[in-house]
Design a protein around this nucleic acid. Structure first.
Lengths: 256, 256
DNA sequence: TAGTGGTCTAGACCACTAA
DNA sequence: TAGTGGTCTAGACCACTAC
């Protein structure tokens, strides 16, 4: 591994900037197994001395690998190869339960509440939830953890009529709604990928900018009324969403 | 807008590092509309002088906004507020056609081929495609564009038996397969979010680290044989994938 | 040619962790 | 207390763009 940081081979022209060359070396070391998960890298100052680069340049290389999730840094401690993250697979076509999903997988599910109270709705909430003037909205925001690892942030809004006492929700929103016969039966989701912001990054213990799956969901009751609007952020490195596709009807399609 | 870069108000303690404070100011300026899409920011050196910060610090703030897609930088030209990106919505449950989707939306679809030839398969390809020893594999890799904007990278692998002459594929793989009665009828997809690497970032004209949707797809023929393995990377800021969910059968679920 | 972003350096201080 | 990453500075040169 010492040869990883030898001063030779840098700037042989045509290989791009120095920080990228170093990032590539380290990244290759991880991919090849020369650097094992959990293994520590030399301190930044040592890497700088070994490679003959400045600490700022070394840092820029390391930062890019931290951003992509290949390395983690702990202040006062050191820089380490990121541990292998176990990926969880989830079906996209079912309204499933986080807690139950985890139980089935033998993991301990836990929530940390960020908010669980009534608010004056935003214009967006009024629109989506079909609220009337002076209606209030219940907001439930929490971090979801499995075996102590934060996996997702969920922020749900419901008409206060459906959930007059948000504090009463324990682990399961749907179970609570069901006691009043108000469990959603259908939902529409939109998925996209976003770079996580600094605040949310802290909640999920990720570096700012890490790729996350953003899922916007609107759930409906059997009556057709809107029950819930939820915005979730899932760790991109920990989640796979599975979906099955069937041939489009017209089959005029000319490409996958 | 000049007050955006006034030296006052920095480091009033408890607001975090200077680069983050500046990033927040600029970000708020964009969100509030004080900075309009396409508008240019002052040169980095000027921002440094105006704020009383060093150029390195200004740059770090700007870089974080570039990474999140709020700003774009052009060397030799300047720094600009990113143009609004029109988001495209796509149903997740249908095997649709990129070209046709775009046509329906009134956009010009185009592909830039990266690869279109026969190769010796990787062990992964042998597994997934169910190849035999000495079988070869056809690889189709291309960048997909709509109205000149790169939206996705697709890398497909098929058994050479299904596609002996990859060069013959014009715009549509499925249309080509259909001429031989070999169009896939079913597919399984897995979605996750990833930070794009430097090489792919260049192809999609994105900054390295931008969030992308990674979609892995295995498609099957009516006979049940595996037809295709495709790894796609979609721009996270340009795509929404829509899915509908129904209540899980047992309804033991205790959470959304 | 002048101005812009892109890269790189050497050195400094701070906040935190671990012994 | 010693060592680590986190932040910040002033100054330099390069590659590219626009004129």
């Amino acid at each position: 591994m010492s040869d990883l940081f030898s001063p030779e081979g840098f700037d042989d022209a045509g290989k791009g900037p120095l920080y990228r060359q170093l990032a590539r070396r380290i990244g290759d070391g991880i991919a090849s197994g020369a650097l094992q998960p959990g293994e520590s890298l030399p301190p930044e100052r040592d890497m700088a001395a070994m490679t003959g680069l400045s600490r700022v340049t070394v840092r820029k290389a390391v930062q890019s690998l931290v951003a992509s999730g290949d390395l983690v840094q702990r202040r006062g401690s050191g820089t380490y190869v990121a541990p292998r993250v176990e990926r969880l697979e989830q079906a996209l076509s079912l309204l499933t339960s986080f807690s139950e999903d985890m139980r089935r997988r033998g993991k301990a599910a836990r929530s940390v509440w960020l908010d669980r109270s009534l608010h004056t709705p935003t214009p967006d909430e009024v629109m989506v939830l079909g609220l009337k003037a002076h209606d209030r909205v219940a907001r439930l925001a929490r971090v979801r953890l499995a075996d102590g690892v934060p996996l997702a942030i969920e922020r749900a809004s419901l008409p206060a009529a459906l959930l007059p006492d948000p504090e009463a929700v324990e682990s399961s929103l749907y179970a609570h709604l069901e006691t009043n016969g108000l469990r959603p039966v259908r939902a529409v989701q939109r998925l996209s990928a976003v770079n996580i912001g600094p605040a949310d990054a802290e909640l999920l213990e990720l570096p700012p900018g890490a790729a996350c799956l953003r899922i916007e969901r609107i759930a409906y009751l059997a009556s057709g009324a809107t029950a819930e609007y939820t915005l979730s952020l899932y760790r991109g490195d920990a989640y796979d969403f599975a979906a099955e596709l069937r041939l489009a009807g017209d089959s005029q399609g000319d490409t996958p």
